[in-house]
């Protein structure tokens, strides 16, 4: 790491105002990062990040690889634990729980309770190869949410219809193309009725001709539901279509954020300009 990546004190001049997406008029505050720092050894991936996202908003995180965008999603999914700071989802802290009026580090059980509100779609789909398509989607609603089997299957059929895979309901993941697998993975995440959907480079592992099908499904979801989305992607056109806000990450910090029109048309920061000219 170069010198300028050293953990900086909060409130240093380079730091813009903390990104906030939406207002209280849009609905309740859904995701809040409060001075969250994540390090891997000496490497600081997220540097005292503040961020607030209100209900129903769609946020796209862009930036060079290693800039910390995927880390945000993995922190929200509790696949990583932050070194410092607090993360709040809805009314509850993800990283902490309240006991006798005091905040203590969250237990596994508490984490599980809070993350039921969060769904995630992975770059490599991560479907369960031992379950057919239908069971991939119904397994968690039945065994985590306690939904009845029939209700879960009905929900799954509806979602498979949404992603256009009804005819593949009885197949194993290995019998599907990457694009089809990813659409099943989207249905699987939505079956939990999460308030927040995390999309981690969901088209990066796909053959180019399969990307459009997956993005169309996501556009559809973004435009027809009120689900909140946090999305890491390299598909800038997609980001432009669905985002309320685009955040540019560099070296663990948000260096610029705003509407897609502003970020893509008239970025203020040099690093943003460089990055966009490289990827567009």
């Amino acid at each position: 790491m170069s010198d300028d990546s050293n953990p900086t004190q909060p409130g240093q001049p380079a730091q813009p105002a903390p990104p906030t997406v939406g207002t209280a008029e849009d609905g309740p505050e859904l995701v809040r990062f409060d001075r969250v720092t994540k390090r891997f050894g000496a490497h600081t991936v997220l540097d005292s990040l503040d961020m607030t996202v209100y209900s129903g908003k769609h946020v796209t995180l862009i930036g060079p690889s290693g800039s910390g965008k995927t880390t945000i999603l993995r922190l929200l999914m509790t696949l990583l634990k932050p070194e410092e700071g607090k993360i709040k989802v809805g009314d509850a802290y993800l990283t902490h729980e309240e006991k006798n009026g005091k905040l203590v580090p969250a237990s596994e059980k508490h984490c599980r309770e809070v993350r039921k509100n969060i769904g995630m779609v992975f770059q490599q789909f991560n479907l369960f190869p031992n379950m057919k398509v239908l069971r991939n989607i119904t397994e968690a609603p039945v065994h985590v949410l306690g939904l009845g089997k029939d209700a879960a299957e009905e929900r799954a059929r509806g979602l498979l219809d949404l992603v256009g895979l009804t005819q593949h309901i009885d197949k194993y993941p290995s019998q599907l193309s990457g694009g089809q697998q990813q659409r099943v993975a989207i249905a699987r995440a939505l079956a939990m009725r999460p308030q927040v959907l995390l999309l981690d480079e969901v088209t990066s592992a796909l053959d180019p001709e399969l990307v459009a099908g997956v993005l169309d499904v996501l556009r559809d979801i973004a435009h027809t539901t009120d689900i909140t989305m946090l999305c890491v992607t390299h598909e800038m056109n997609f980001a432009r279509d669905i985002s309320d806000c685009v955040m540019m990450f560099d070296q663990g910090r948000v260096i610029e954020f705003g509407t897609p029109e502003k970020i893509f048309s008239e970025p203020e920061n040099d690093r943003t300009r460089e990055f966009l000219s490289a990827v567009l």
């Binding site: 999914m77 696949l79 039921k116 969060i118 992975f122 490599q124 991560n126 369960f128 397994e139 995440a189």
Partner: peptide
């Protein structure tokens, strides 16, 4: 990644 996917679905 299979474990992560199972965590993301809140399995115990």
């Amino acid at each position: 990644a299979q474990r992560e996917a199972a965590i993301a679905l809140s399995f115990t």
